[in-house]
Write a protein that binds this DNA or RNA. Sequence first.
DNA 1: CTATCTTTGTGCACGCGTTCACAAAGACAT
DNA 2: ATGTCTTTGTGAACGCGTGCACAAAGATAG
Lengths: 260, 260
Amino acid sequence: MATGRTHRPATRSRGIPEATVARLPLYLRALTALSERSVPTVSSEELAAAAGVNSAKLRKDFSYLGSYGTRGVGYDVEYLVYQISRELGLTQDWPVAIVGIGNLGAALANYGGFASRGFRVAALIDADPAMAGTPVAGIAVQHTDDLDRIISDNGVSIGVITTPPGAAQQVCDRLVAAGVTSILNFAPTVLSVPDGVDVRKVDLSIELQILAFHEQRKAGEEAAAEGVALEDPDEEAPPMRATPANRKGPDGDMPAVMPA
Amino acid sequence: MATGRTHRPATRSRGIPEATVARLPLYLRALTALSERSVPTVSSEELAAAAGVNSAKLRKDFSYLGSYGTRGVGYDVEYLVYQISRELGLTQDWPVAIVGIGNLGAALANYGGFASRGFRVAALIDADPAMAGTPVAGIAVQHTDDLDRIISDNGVSIGVITTPPGAAQQVCDRLVAAGVTSILNFAPTVLSVPDGVDVRKVDLSIELQILAFHEQRKAGEEAAAEGVALEDPDEEAPPMRATPANRKGPDGDMPAVMPA
DNA sequence: CTATCTTTGTGCACGCGTTCACAAAGACAT
DNA sequence: ATGTCTTTGTGAACGCGTGCACAAAGATAG
């Protein structure tokens, strides 16, 4: 520390990096596990290993929250659990509404990981009139027509969208109009929302596609390492490229060298 | 462009940025929609809007793949669909195995977004003997005991884990041992895998917690804007901090100033 | 009280990703 | 053929996130 005696310069003002926020739940999970085993303190090294991150990163992350550690000892588990919970807003109750009770919506409604962290499934909403009244995960499904009232009555500010892609934007608009300001979107659609509304996206298909990319790369390298004679995989069988030039016909098959 | 006449310097060598790879599926989706509407070409501006990104970013992303656009016109939709599909490895068939057929696993098995992109659910695996043989999404569930054989027989290289957290690491180890090199993990657990194996994590609870953080921040700012007299929300009711000092008893309640 | 040992908190440098802004490239009209 | 207009492709600057490496802080023992 170069500035010898600045007590606490700008720490904790307003602005925990987004990357840090995304890791806090990870730390919280690891800490909760330690807490259940009645472990009193952890070092940054141990906790980092449990959370699967670099210890320096963890220490820097915690430094944004304040100086909660004790040098030479580590962090007090219970105290950190409380501090992180409070920072994340988990000390209060968050009623959540799930819209679109298909396979995925029903699975989420049954998912135990929500209730354990202050999230409460307050309402299930679906557009199918036949589903109205059907209990899913012990909660009666309600119809989309009443969406506005349901959101208001339950004080829902977080909505989960598990509808088919075609309905997602419309549902989103209605949720926002009803007062929802945070949305977790499982539909494969780009949602547009007004400023002040947060959207997080979970896209199963995209995750698989990213894995496929790396998988393909691995397969290619492996083949190359085995000395297989393969042409550049980047260039295999490019179908006719329909540029405006060759689509229109004239000037279509132009020689490589421009005739003067 | 300062280097007047370099035809194609180092582009396309080996190394599409990870951030770009993560966006390619997004572009692909938007392009597929355009293709279905028989739109022949798009400008970077239009496509960027459809994908919800900045147009400069999109152009830079595409530049990593090669020069597939036509200045003054835009990009040929069909051609781009093919190029991105090939780059992502979607021109081949990817057999996928889902392990853990609970609510979520069943929902994924039924999810249509997979088949549409070259992913094929080749096997469903569960540890419950009672489930063996039960058809889910038209596929008979098989027992974990046969995991090795199932993976080998079907040439599965991508595994999806939807087990309870306690079983996730063990299942992961077995998948890797059987030859799986890409894993999509839905269990709230940090998986450790050997080098060469890719893991992507989807954690519903974490996503909600991140939303809660921002939601809390919004609520706080709103209250502050309304002029409500509130103490610093960061400091509300900190419970007794169990530092080693005050946990041990002696030297517990030390005065702020060290007695000489 | 002093010395030693452990672990935090953070300054610093580096690399990746994003964005701006513009020259080059091609289409299109005349 | 020449000029204008549109849109790409990318150099360059900037900002965020990561990780190293170390000094300061506190614990602990003698």
